[in-house]
Amino acid sequence: MSTKLVIGLDGHTSGERALEFATTLAEQIGNCELLVAYVIEWSPYSFQTAEENAQRHKRREEEISTAKERVVEPAVARLTSAGLTASSVVRHGDVADTLNAIAKQANASQIIVARSTDTRLSKRIFGSSTANLVMEADVPVTVVS
């Protein structure tokens, strides 16, 4: 059975380092599958106007296709051109929870993410997604600096 690694990207350039690290690791392991994951931050408990609700399905599709086009597919293309087996997934939700769920569902042996580049105030109050992932994940997490 091949080893599965989940690579969590956030659309920032720091993701490059996570990809590089995962490539090296996969080459060392040999029989390895890579799953590139992108989570669009979203909460089912946010407040929206009726008009936003009516257009939500359309916006969701747009968000997913933009994430695929700009982040996930270029990453998969890069990994496959390096001779690796790679696939992708884009989901909405809480970043840490959803990455963990993706890893569990795929029976992945670890999650690789880059260190968060988020410097907003909310990060200082609630902690970054990366920190939350490290604390809550059910599989080992590698944070690439």
């Binding site: 089912p44 408990y45 407040f47 609700n53 939500r56 969701r60 997913i64 989901r91 909405h92």
Partner: peptide, 9 residues
């Protein structure tokens, strides 16, 4: 996930 939830409606 990402669609309008019951809570939001």
């Amino acid at each position: 996930a990402g669609e309008v939830s019951h809570f939001q409606a």
